[in-house]
Amino acid sequence: MLKWNDVLKLANQGNLTPDKRVAKTEAEWRGLLSDEEYWVTREAGTERAFSSALCSLLEPGIYACRCCDTLLFDASEKFDSRTGWPSFSQPIKPNAIAYRLDSSHGMTRVETTCNACDAHLGHVFPDGPGESGLRYCMNAIALQKK
């Protein structure tokens, strides 16, 4: 189980090796994704809060990366954070997510990306429930429910 200190260590010292790597050209990504999906996942955009039904969807399932189909989260780790974005307390595997310090917008946060294709997913915060204390705050448009 990952905890906040683990996330900070990965963000500062380097991420775990992914099970696979997926690389495409910008043109290939644009051909696969809608304009909004491209903006969020490839340009680190953020969808509007409460713009997706995934926020309150708490049924069983697995969530994968919209761009490369890599499995990222199990719905058993999903919770309603009331933030306007789907939230999870743990990734499906420690090496599914990559982390980097993000000092944009006048604050320091930890950005989360798909470790296989580098798609921007959202951010992780140390204010989640349970033993891990993590809240993976994800853009719903960056995910697909399997």
Rank of each mutant, 00 (worst) to 15 (best):
residue 62 I to R: 12
residue 98 A to L: 06
residue 84 G to T: 11
residue 93 K to D: 09
residue 94 P to W: 01
residue 100 R to C: 09
residue 49 A to P: 02
residue 97 I to G: 09
residue 112 T to F: 05
residue 83 T to R: 10
residue 105 H to Q: 12
residue 82 R to C: 06
residue 96 A to V: 01
residue 92 I to C: 11
residue 92 I to H: 11
residue 91 P to S: 04
residue 53 A to M: 00
residue 90 Q to R: 12
residue 105 H to R: 12
residue 109 R to I: 09
residue 94 P to G: 03
residue 70 T to H: 11
residue 104 S to Y: 04
residue 79 F to P: 02
residue 68 C to F: 03
residue 61 G to H: 03
residue 51 S to A: 15
residue 88 F to E: 04
residue 86 P to F: 05
residue 73 F to P: 06
residue 63 Y to A: 00
residue 66 R to K: 15
residue 52 S to W: 09
residue 79 F to G: 07
residue 60 P to M: 07
residue 49 A to L: 07
residue 67 C to W: 02
residue 53 A to P: 04
residue 101 L to W: 10
residue 72 L to G: 09
residue 103 S to E: 13
residue 100 R to S: 14
residue 70 T to M: 10
residue 103 S to Y: 04
residue 49 A to Y: 02
residue 88 F to P: 01
residue 98 A to K: 14
residue 67 C to Q: 04
residue 62 I to F: 03
residue 111 E to P: 03
residue 103 S to M: 07
residue 69 D to K: 14
residue 82 R to N: 13
residue 66 R to N: 12
residue 104 S to N: 12
residue 68 C to Y: 03
residue 108 T to Y: 00
residue 93 K to R: 15
residue 66 R to D: 02
residue 105 H to V: 08
residue 74 D to H: 13
residue 112 T to C: 13
residue 99 Y to A: 01
residue 101 L to V: 15
residue 75 A to D: 12
residue 57 L to Y: 06
residue 89 S to H: 11
residue 75 A to R: 03
residue 64 A to K: 14
residue 107 M to T: 13
residue 63 Y to M: 01
residue 80 D to W: 03
residue 64 A to C: 13
residue 110 V to S: 07
residue 53 A to G: 13
residue 91 P to V: 01
residue 96 A to M: 04
residue 84 G to E: 11
residue 67 C to E: 02
